[in-house]
Protein backbone atom coordinates (compact mmCIF):
# COMPACT_ATOMS: atom_id res chain seq x y z
CA UNK A 1 0.00 0.00 0.00
CA UNK A 2 1.57 3.31 -1.02
CA UNK A 3 0.33 6.82 -0.38
CA UNK A 4 -0.99 7.26 -3.90
CA UNK A 5 -3.05 4.05 -3.80
CA UNK A 6 -4.45 5.07 -0.43
CA UNK A 7 -5.29 8.55 -1.71
CA UNK A 8 -7.17 7.08 -4.67
CA UNK A 9 -9.01 4.52 -2.55
CA UNK A 10 -9.95 7.30 -0.16
CA UNK A 11 -11.24 9.42 -3.00
CA UNK A 12 -13.26 6.59 -4.57
CA UNK A 13 -14.79 5.74 -1.19
CA UNK A 14 -15.40 9.36 -0.19
CA UNK A 15 -13.12 9.09 2.86
CA UNK A 16 -11.34 12.00 4.50
CA UNK A 17 -8.24 10.69 6.25
CA UNK A 18 -5.81 12.60 8.43
CA UNK A 19 -2.07 12.20 7.86
CA UNK A 20 -1.82 10.17 11.08
CA UNK A 21 -4.60 7.83 9.94
CA UNK A 22 -2.93 7.43 6.56
CA UNK A 23 0.39 6.47 8.18
CA UNK A 24 -1.40 3.98 10.43
CA UNK A 25 -3.24 2.41 7.51
CA UNK A 26 -0.11 2.15 5.39
CA UNK A 27 1.83 0.62 8.28
CA UNK A 28 -1.03 -1.82 8.95
CA UNK A 29 -1.15 -3.03 5.36
CA UNK A 30 2.64 -3.15 5.01
CA UNK A 31 2.83 -5.45 8.00
CA UNK A 32 -0.01 -7.70 6.81
CA UNK A 33 1.43 -7.77 3.31
CA UNK A 34 4.85 -8.88 4.42
CA UNK A 35 3.31 -11.56 6.66
CA UNK A 36 1.07 -12.80 3.86
CA UNK A 37 3.90 -12.69 1.36
CA UNK A 38 6.12 -14.77 3.64
CA UNK A 39 3.36 -17.36 3.95
CA UNK A 40 2.61 -17.43 0.23
CA UNK A 41 6.26 -17.56 -0.81
CA UNK A 42 6.66 -21.04 0.62
CA UNK A 43 3.89 -22.43 -1.60
CA UNK A 44 4.86 -23.69 -5.04
CA UNK A 45 2.21 -22.35 -7.42
CA UNK A 46 4.07 -22.93 -10.67
CA UNK A 47 1.66 -25.68 -11.77
CA UNK A 48 -1.49 -24.03 -10.48
CA UNK A 49 -3.79 -22.57 -13.12
CA UNK A 50 -5.34 -19.21 -12.48
CA UNK A 51 -8.86 -19.43 -11.05
CA UNK A 52 -11.29 -17.47 -13.17
CA UNK A 53 -14.47 -18.51 -11.41
CA UNK A 54 -15.30 -20.06 -8.06
CA UNK A 55 -17.47 -22.71 -9.74
CA UNK A 56 -16.45 -25.05 -12.57
CA UNK A 57 -18.84 -23.36 -15.00
CA UNK A 58 -18.47 -21.98 -18.48
CA UNK A 59 -20.66 -20.03 -20.81
CA UNK A 60 -22.71 -21.27 -23.70
CA UNK A 61 -22.25 -19.49 -27.00
CA UNK A 62 -24.69 -18.82 -29.80
CA UNK A 63 -24.22 -18.92 -33.57
CA UNK A 64 -23.73 -15.61 -35.37
CA UNK A 65 -27.21 -15.24 -36.82
CA UNK A 66 -28.89 -11.82 -36.86
CA UNK A 67 -32.56 -11.41 -36.07
CA UNK A 68 -34.82 -8.59 -34.93
CA UNK A 69 -37.57 -9.84 -32.65
CA UNK A 70 -38.31 -6.43 -31.09
CA UNK A 71 -39.58 -3.26 -32.70
CA UNK A 72 -38.26 0.17 -31.95
CA UNK A 73 -41.73 1.35 -31.05
CA UNK A 74 -42.17 -1.38 -28.44
CA UNK A 75 -38.79 -0.62 -26.90
CA UNK A 76 -39.44 3.10 -26.77
CA UNK A 77 -42.99 2.77 -25.43
CA UNK A 78 -41.88 3.59 -21.88
CA UNK A 79 -39.36 6.28 -22.78
CA UNK A 80 -39.93 9.74 -21.25
CA UNK A 81 -39.08 11.36 -24.59
CA UNK A 82 -38.27 10.25 -28.13
CA UNK A 83 -37.77 12.16 -31.35
CA UNK A 84 -37.41 10.85 -34.92
CA UNK A 85 -36.63 7.35 -33.60
CA UNK A 86 -34.02 8.55 -31.09
CA UNK A 87 -34.19 8.41 -27.33
CA UNK A 88 -33.82 11.91 -25.94
CA UNK A 89 -31.71 12.67 -22.87
CA UNK A 90 -30.76 15.92 -21.18
CA UNK A 91 -28.22 17.64 -23.36
CA UNK A 92 -24.67 16.39 -22.90
CA UNK A 93 -22.16 19.17 -23.22
CA UNK A 94 -19.21 18.12 -25.33
Amino acid sequence: MDRDTLRRLGMLNQLSLTDVQKEEIIAFFDERESEAKAELDVIDTSDVERMVHVMPVFTVVREDVASQPFTREALQAGAPETDEGYWCVPRVLE
Binding site: D83, E84, Y86, W87, C88, V89, P90, R91, V92, E94
Partner: peptide, 13 residues
Protein backbone atom coordinates in the same frame (compact mmCIF):
# COMPACT_ATOMS: atom_id res chain seq x y z
CA UNK B 1 -24.94 10.56 -29.55
CA UNK B 2 -26.30 13.24 -31.87
CA UNK B 3 -26.09 16.78 -30.57
CA UNK B 4 -27.24 18.89 -33.47
CA UNK B 5 -30.89 17.89 -34.02
CA UNK B 6 -32.24 20.05 -31.20
CA UNK B 7 -30.61 22.50 -28.87
CA UNK B 8 -32.25 21.28 -25.68
CA UNK B 9 -31.54 17.54 -25.86
CA UNK B 10 -29.00 14.99 -26.94
CA UNK B 11 -30.39 12.30 -29.23
CA UNK B 12 -29.30 8.72 -28.60
CA UNK B 13 -28.97 5.94 -31.17
Amino acid sequence: LVHDIREDTTHVD
